[in-house]
Design a protein around this nucleic acid. Structure first.
Length: 556
RNA sequence: UGCCUUGUAGUGGAAUUGGUUAACACGCCUGACUUUGGUUCAGGAGAUUUCAGGUUCGAGUCCUGACGAGGCAUCCA
């Protein structure tokens, strides 16, 4: 039971770091988060961010934010800014400024020349198809390029011509000279520089040749003295190349370690597919609250803490699996339960007339803002003759009182912070729907000063008809109806959940919400957590449902 | 039929590095409390650690083999 008994178990990366620190192999921890600015960050990136920045915090090291911007065709400043906003929102400190691989283009160019001079790189004039064909396939040795043994002088000259724009795009590339027979395809003379006569979002027209990932990433890590370069599993095969280049270049020996990317049930985590959802209009944008992007999760009402907690709960390992979204949902509930003030919101209003309540009487009831946080205080709620409750809270023919705690003919419930009322009748509309119900309140049962001794099972939320504030509520459900989207054979678009968004245009919320501002978060009692959307206006409040409350009742 | 990574309750993920009844979390099920069918609290079910051999006093951990899963053959990252 003592403190030292509950020794926290380390994940394999922490284990490695502590071993390195202990053995003196490393004396500090430097990590980096290296997004390519070609899309928005999503929940999977959040895992990586928390891992990299979290490790730096834990071991008193540093974590750089470095944009891996070596492909000008796909990258833009819009994405850079969005990524920076997300990281700041998560609350991480990346030092003085964000770094860019493009800042190292001069150095990288020098590195290429060094490699050529060592006879370890050559300019290949074969077409893309020829190069690809030369690599053959993993089961048989590749074929050497006819340009492979050109002289250092010639390669130097031609590489300079590449840089000067004298060769057409696609006409030649710089290749590392390694081993065309390697069983590892990445070692079969990988392309390290290609011609792209495209302006770069930061360096403009300065360059018409750009290094590839393999000749940029590890080198940038090295330039930044990164000790732990953490990446996802699919880069495992690049590691020998990563090491080979650092070795040949004789630069700081950063080390790559792979971990499994996050897969989430009912969720797609692929930049390409997310882009498709946006482009094809399946969602309203990158920050559509149904998206798994960080900006969308923010708009949906997820907090930085909830995402961090989630990342820690998921853990880090080397085998890839699929995490249940329920864990994400649990993480927000856990956080918001402590932070969000409680209010009453009625999605589908049903009028209740308290027939024994005087016509014009208004009584002010005091409501607790957050039972989990005493400092949150209380608020006033006007109680009047005509109220609204949730339609779902009344049933004309309810099951037995043991199964149904809410209202029905002759049933009693408490209106929270108000009185216990008994249903004495109801009126139906022509179409058979319940138009309004009639109740009598018991004056002895006022909240806080109940002298009746009555006990009721049900407690309902309500809002005074006269004081209610209109609002639009957007109910979100999972974007996809299929649990594991990694194992489907058809187009993922076929798996979209048609009911992922339900708009409730005429909801009513309690008067205290009148001045709620975008970003304010609440728990609508018995319903879920909600956040005021950015599209909310003074005329019409708009709430996004972050997540429902846990519900042990509807499951039965 | 090449190479790399990886197989532990439904899911994620530990196991003092070869040591007794295989953590913990989510989910699920009971019960208690409750002016949220929430929260909290107490408890429970659920694993022949993919399989088959082997080494050992002792194997989830080591060895061999099989099988499964994922990745690698973009002038993407």
């Amino acid at each position: 039971m003592s403190e030292n008994e509950k020794r926290e178990s380390l994940n394999f990366i922490e284990q490695m770091i502590e071993d390195d620190l202990a053995s003196g192999k490393n004396s500090f921890v430097q990590t980096r988060f290296p997004p390519e600015p070609n899309g928005y960050l999503h929940i999977g990136h959040a895992k990586s961010i928390v891992l990299n920045f979290g490790l730096a915090e834990k071991y008193n090291g540093k974590c750089n934010l470095r944009f891996d911007d070596t492909n000008p065709e796909k990258e833009s400043t819009e994405y850079v800014n969005a990524i920076i906003e997300d990281i700041k929102w998560l609350g991480y400190d990346y030092g003085e400024k964000a770094l860019f691989t493009s800042d190292y283009f001069d150095t990288l160019y020098e590195y290429a020349i060094k490699l050529i001079k060592k006879g370890k790189a050559y300019v290949d004039h074969q077409s893309a198809e020829e190069i690809s064909a030369g690599k053959t396939n993993p089961t048989i040795p590749g074929i050497e390029s006819p340009y492979r043994n050109n002289s250092v002088e010639q390669n130097l000259e031609e590489f300079e011509k590449m840089r000067a724009g004298e060769y057409a795009e696609g006409s030649c590339v710089l290749r590392a000279k390694i081993d065309m027979t390697s069983p590892n395809m990445h070692m079969r003379d990988p392309i390290i520089y290609r011609i792209k006569k495209v302006a770069h979002h930061r360096t403009g027209d300065k360059w018409c040749i750009y290094p590839n990932y393999d000749f940029a990433h590890g080198q940038s890590d090295s330039i930044e003295n990164v000790t732990y370069s953490l990446c996802t599993l699919e880069f495992r095969d690049h590691k020998p190349l990563y090491d080979w280049l650092i070795d040949e270049l004789e630069i700081f020996p950063s080390k790559q370690t792979e971990f499994a990317r996050l897969n989430l049930s009912y969720t797609i985590v692929s930049k390409r597919k997310l882009l498709q959802l946006v482009n094809d209009g399946h969602v309203a944008g990158w920050d559509d609250p149904r998206m798994p992007t960080i900006s969308a999760l923010r708009r949906r009402g997820f907090t930085p803490d909830s995402l961090k907690k989630f990342a820690h709960k998921v853990g880090v390992a080397r085998r890839d699996g699929i995490t249940d979204v329920a864990l994400l949902e649990h993480s927000v509930r856990e956080d918001l339960n402590k932070k969000a003030n409680r209010v009453f919101g009625i999605q589908n209003p049903l009028k209740v007339v308290i027939t024994n309540w005087p016509e014009d009487k208004e009584e002010i009831m005091q409501a607790v803002n957050n039972p989990e946080d005493e400092t949150a205080g209380t608020r006033d709620m006007p109680f009047t003759r005509e109220l609204y409750i949730e339609q779902d809270d009344f049933l004309e023919n309810p099951p037995s009182p043991r199964k149904w705690f809410r209202l029905g003919p002759d049933r009693e419930v408490r209106l929270k912070y108000g009185y216990i009322v008994k249903c004495t009748g109801f009126k139906k509309a022509d179409d058979g729907s319940i138009e309004e119900i009639y109740c009598e309140y018991d004056p002895e049962t006022k909240s806080g000063q109940d002298t009746s001794g009555k006990k009721v099972k049900g407690t309902l939320g309500w809002v005074s008809a006269k004081h209610a504030v209109e609002a639009e509520i957007r109910l979100y459900d999972r974007l996809f109806k299929t649990e594991n989207l990694n194992t489907i054979d058809d187009d993922f678009i076929n798996h979209l959940n048609p009911d992922s968004l339900t708009i409730v245009p005429n909801a009513l919320v309690e008067p205290s919400l009148k001045d709620a501002k975008a970003g304010d978060q609440f728990q609508f009692e018995r319903q879920g957590y909600f956040i005021v959307d950015k599209e909310s206006t003074d005329d019409k409040l708009v709430f996004n449902r972050t997540v429902t409350l846990r519900d042990n009742w509807s499951k039965k």
